Simulated scan of single mutants.
Amino acid sequence: MSSLKDIYIDQMQDIYSACKQSKDATQKLHDAATDSELKSALKAGVEGIEQGMSTLSEIIKGHGEDPTDEFCKGMEGLVKEVHAHVLDTDFTDDDVRDAMIITQYQRMAHYAIAGYGCCKAFGKRLGQDDDVTKLDKCLDASYDGDKHMTEIATHGINKAAAA
């Protein structure tokens, strides 16, 4: 690493890897969820992650690099948490499981928000205006997905889980 551009490409590759890992985990969370609104949001999450991966791949390849040259250890840890706290845990209440699903999904989403935000800032500094526009859409989609999960949690699932 010898320049901001090197960091920029590296971090986009990291987020690409994070998306790949979180996509599989989000699909498994979808399969485990019982609330119909949550299932729908998780399905939309998978689709959004796929769109983010497509955008990142396009940007990274546009800089002459391979999007798969990095493996994100941070997301690997978060996916392990998905398994430990949801997929490998026995729940006696579906609402409690759904509340935990939201928790784990949002942790992964926050990782993506941080990554897209950093890459956007690097892109801005480097004058990569087209990249920044695309990264901003990915960042907005990640924020929107996170907000939607908070709404689902606070308007029903958390109340049901507390009952």
Rank of each mutant, 00 (worst) to 15 (best):
Y143N: 13
E151Q: 05
M149Q: 07
C138S: 10
G117Y: 04
M149D: 07
K137I: 11
D140L: 06
G156H: 12
C138M: 04
L126D: 08
D140M: 12
I113Q: 12
A141P: 06
K120L: 10
A121Q: 06
T150W: 02
T154D: 14
V132T: 14
T150H: 00
K120S: 15
I113G: 03
Q128P: 01
D136R: 10
D129A: 13
A114R: 08
G156P: 12
Y116P: 04
G145D: 09
S142W: 08
A112M: 11
T154K: 14
C118N: 07
T154S: 09
H148L: 09
D136P: 01
G127C: 10
D144V: 00
D131N: 10
L135A: 00
C138T: 08
G117M: 10
G127F: 12
G145M: 10
D144A: 15
T133K: 15
A112W: 03
D130R: 15
T133G: 05
L139G: 02
A153M: 10
K134E: 06
G156A: 11
A153P: 11
Y111L: 00
Y111N: 03
T154V: 02
H110T: 01
G115P: 00
T154E: 14
A153L: 14
D146Q: 02
Y116K: 09
G156M: 13
T154L: 15
Q128I: 08
C119T: 13
G115H: 05
Y143R: 13
G127N: 01
Y116G: 04
G115S: 04
L126M: 13
D144Q: 14
D130L: 09
G115R: 02
C118V: 13
E151S: 13
V132Q: 09
K124F: 00
G123A: 09
T150L: 02
C119R: 03
G117K: 08
E151D: 15
I152V: 10
F122P: 05
K137N: 07
L126C: 12
M149G: 06
Y111W: 03
H148R: 06
K147A: 08
K147D: 09
K120R: 15
A109P: 00
K134G: 01
Y116E: 05
I152H: 06
Q128C: 12
A109K: 11
K147V: 07
Y143H: 15
A141D: 13
A141F: 06
T154Y: 12
K147E: 03
L126F: 12
H110A: 06
V132F: 00
I157G: 00
V132W: 05
L139H: 06
H110I: 02
I157R: 12
A112T: 11
T154W: 04
H155R: 07
Y111S: 06
Y116F: 13
C118L: 09
H155P: 09
L135F: 06
I152Y: 01
K134T: 10
C119H: 01
C119V: 09
I113A: 02
A121V: 13
I157W: 11
K137S: 02
G145Y: 03
A114K: 06
K147Q: 12
L139N: 09
G123I: 04
D136C: 01
S142E: 14
G123W: 01
Q128Y: 10
K124W: 03
D146Y: 04
A141C: 08
I152N: 11
